[in-house]
Simulated assay, not measured.
Amino acid sequence: MNIRDLEYLVALADQRNFRRAAEICNVSQPTLSTQLRKLEDELGVALVERIPRNVTLTAAGADVVARARRILAELAELKQSASARRGGQNRLRLGVFPTLSPYLLPHIIPPIRERFPGMELLLTEEKSSVLRQQLASGQLDAAILADPSEDAQQDSQHLFDEPFLLAVPSGHRLSRQDFVAPGDLRDERLMLLEEGHCLRDQALEASRQVGAREETTFRATSLETLRQMVAAGVGMTFLPALACLPAALDFRGYSVLPFHRASFQRSVAIHWRRTSPMVDAIAECGQIIAAEIPSLLGRGRQARFA
């Protein structure tokens, strides 16, 4: 048994899919499957039930996963503690998911650097599932995430709630309105991101609430692709408010509209391991980020209605 085997098992438990777990661990699917078979042989128990298109943990597997998480967290803190003694505590490794990072980081990095001038800030942009794995394994000190997390080894601090806006092509019947009522979207089709983005799940839930459906003939790999498709008149989509700041777009070819009396939004938080020696610095960074958001969102509202 080695540490990588435990990482493979935890990734599979999180993803419930061999292909996605292998991608996160940066190995081939056969390699991951073979190593987990060896781990089962070594322990003498079945850890997973291999059902077509699904993976379910056995009772023994759930117990081993819980223990593996604790072992990986302890190993991460051991490495971080040693790094701190070498002076590495002046380095913060922060992960952010891709539908937020390009719109948030340019605004929050300068004040963080001003507050911690001697700290090296290493930034990672990855999907939320990858960030969770990297945080648990000690590759990251903190991660900014927008999907709920229940992890006994981690703490989190709420940063802000980010509203969703509706992006529609110029000339669309809704483009002349100041607001969108949920009923305006009944039976409409919305373009969404591909599988693996937390924003996709959030947009799907909002779509269900307003009676809209997904446009199944197209799935984007990024918000910028969605934006350009809307500007080209192909369809409409949800965009998070920070992606609609003046610096992020020029509104040519489309409009972005807020929802009237509807709270379609995502809750963004910063997560870290409870035993991290960087807890105080991470929490203070969280306070800096939270303090920047109201003016950013206000700036976006002023630009849309100027």
Rank of each mutant, 00 (worst) to 15 (best):
L104N: 09
L104F: 08
P106D: 11
P106G: 04
H107I: 12
I108K: 03
I108T: 08
I108S: 06
I109F: 09
P110I: 09
P110S: 08
P111C: 05
P111A: 03
P111D: 08
R113P: 11
R113K: 14
R115Q: 04
F116S: 07
F116C: 06
F116N: 05
P117Q: 04
G118M: 10
M119D: 15
L122D: 15
T124C: 01
E125Q: 07
S128G: 12
S128T: 10
L131F: 05
R132K: 14
R132Q: 12
Q133S: 04
Q134G: 04
L135Q: 09
S137R: 07
Q139G: 06
D141W: 03
A142E: 08
A143N: 06
A143P: 12
L145H: 02
L145S: 03
A146Q: 13
D147A: 09
D147Q: 14
S149P: 01
D151G: 03
D151Q: 15
Q153C: 11
Q153K: 09
Q153H: 13
Q153W: 13
Q154L: 10
D155F: 10
S156L: 04
S156H: 14
Q157A: 06
H158K: 05
L159Q: 07
F160G: 08
D161N: 08
E162D: 14
P163G: 06
L165A: 02
L165P: 13
L165S: 05
L165I: 10
L166S: 02
A167I: 14
A167N: 11
V168C: 05
P169I: 02
G171H: 09
R173E: 14
L174Q: 04
L174A: 01
R176V: 09
Q177P: 00
D178I: 02
F179T: 12
F179Y: 15
V180A: 03
A181W: 12
P182T: 05
P182I: 01
G183A: 13
D184L: 01
L185A: 02
D187H: 05
D187V: 00
E188R: 07
E188N: 12
R189F: 14
R189V: 10
M191L: 15
M191W: 12
L192M: 15
L192G: 03
L193S: 04
G196Q: 03
C198F: 12
L199I: 14
L199V: 11
R200P: 06
R200W: 11
D201F: 03
D201H: 11
Q202W: 01
A203Q: 15
A206Y: 07
A206M: 09
A206V: 04
Q209A: 15
Q209E: 15
V210W: 00
G211E: 06
A212C: 05
A212M: 05
A212I: 10
E214V: 08
E215S: 00
T216V: 09
T217E: 11
T217L: 08
